[in-house]
Simulated assay, not measured.
Amino acid sequence: MPRIRVEVDGATYEDDVEPRLLLVHYLRDRLGKVGTPVGCDTSNCGACTVLMDGMSVKSCSVLAVQADGRDVTTVEGLGIGGAEHPMQRAFHEEHALQCGYCTPGMIMASIDLLRENADPSEEEVRDGLEGNLCRCTGYQNIVKAVRRAAAEMRTPAPEPEGREPEVTS
């Protein structure tokens, strides 16, 4: 049985895995990362999308052995110190979910989309998310959420009150 070493959400795991084990099942069944849903098992819906080395992949179409030596981020690994990632916050604030089943994959694919295009138009968001299906929303609020998060991610965070900005020479 092959032995893999993979970093998932900032923690390193070493495991023996069956060569045919899908990454989605490794994440859910071995590591307890149940925020990554199993949607269709055919890579059609995108619900299982995660980031591997910063790029979105459908984890039902990737073998766990292919993640050996890679960095995987699930929806549970987003945010710093328990704070929501801007994309998670935007999905919440723009009501970009109904049943929520597609939401983890939509969020992860959207983050990768913004990595490639920091200021996408509505059409570019729709094109960028075409591999992720939502059966509930009609996508309008998802598009609004992605564009809202994009704007927030482009804007530098304000300095804490009472603190002067650092000046370097």
Score class of each variant (00 low, 15 high):
residue 4 I to C: 03
residue 4 I to G: 00
residue 7 E to P: 00
residue 9 D to L: 07
residue 11 A to K: 13
residue 12 T to F: 05
residue 14 E to K: 08
residue 15 D to L: 09
residue 16 D to P: 00
residue 16 D to G: 06
residue 18 E to T: 13
residue 19 P to Y: 02
residue 20 R to A: 15
residue 22 L to T: 05
residue 22 L to A: 09
residue 22 L to K: 15
residue 22 L to Y: 12
residue 24 V to N: 03
residue 25 H to G: 00
residue 26 Y to A: 06
residue 29 D to P: 04
residue 29 D to Q: 15
residue 29 D to S: 14
residue 32 G to L: 14
residue 34 V to A: 14
residue 36 T to A: 01
residue 37 P to V: 02
residue 37 P to F: 03
residue 39 G to E: 01
residue 39 G to K: 00
residue 40 C to F: 11
residue 40 C to G: 06
residue 40 C to E: 09
residue 42 T to M: 13
residue 44 N to R: 05
residue 44 N to Y: 06
residue 45 C to I: 10
residue 46 G to C: 08
residue 48 C to A: 01
residue 49 T to K: 01
residue 50 V to Y: 02
residue 52 M to D: 01
residue 55 M to C: 05
residue 57 V to A: 04
residue 57 V to E: 01
residue 59 S to M: 03
residue 59 S to K: 07
residue 59 S to P: 01
residue 61 S to M: 15
residue 62 V to K: 03
residue 63 L to S: 05
residue 68 D to V: 04
residue 68 D to M: 05
residue 70 R to V: 02
residue 74 T to L: 04
residue 75 V to T: 02
residue 76 E to W: 03
residue 78 L to I: 08
residue 79 G to C: 08
residue 81 G to Q: 04
residue 82 G to M: 12
residue 83 A to S: 15
residue 84 E to H: 06
residue 87 M to W: 04
residue 88 Q to W: 06
residue 89 R to K: 15
residue 90 A to Q: 12
residue 91 F to E: 04
residue 93 E to F: 06
residue 93 E to P: 00
residue 95 H to Q: 13
residue 95 H to R: 11
residue 96 A to L: 13
residue 98 Q to N: 14
residue 98 Q to I: 11
residue 98 Q to T: 11
residue 99 C to Q: 15
residue 103 T to C: 04
residue 111 I to N: 03
residue 112 D to V: 08
residue 113 L to H: 10
residue 113 L to F: 11
residue 115 R to H: 15
residue 115 R to G: 15
residue 116 E to C: 06
residue 122 E to F: 04
residue 122 E to G: 08
residue 124 E to T: 07
residue 124 E to R: 15
residue 124 E to H: 09
residue 126 R to D: 03
residue 127 D to N: 14
residue 127 D to H: 09
residue 128 G to D: 07
residue 128 G to L: 10
residue 130 E to F: 03
residue 130 E to C: 08
residue 132 N to Q: 02
residue 133 L to F: 07
residue 133 L to E: 01
residue 135 R to W: 10
residue 137 T to I: 11
residue 140 Q to I: 10
residue 141 N to I: 05
residue 143 V to L: 03
residue 143 V to C: 05
residue 150 A to Y: 00
residue 151 A to Y: 11
residue 152 E to P: 00
residue 153 M to D: 01
residue 155 T to A: 12
residue 157 A to M: 14
residue 158 P to K: 14
residue 159 E to K: 13
residue 159 E to Q: 13
residue 161 E to Q: 11
residue 163 R to Q: 07
residue 164 E to Y: 10
residue 165 P to D: 10
residue 166 E to N: 01
residue 166 E to R: 10
residue 166 E to S: 09
residue 167 V to W: 06
residue 168 T to S: 11
residue 169 S to I: 07
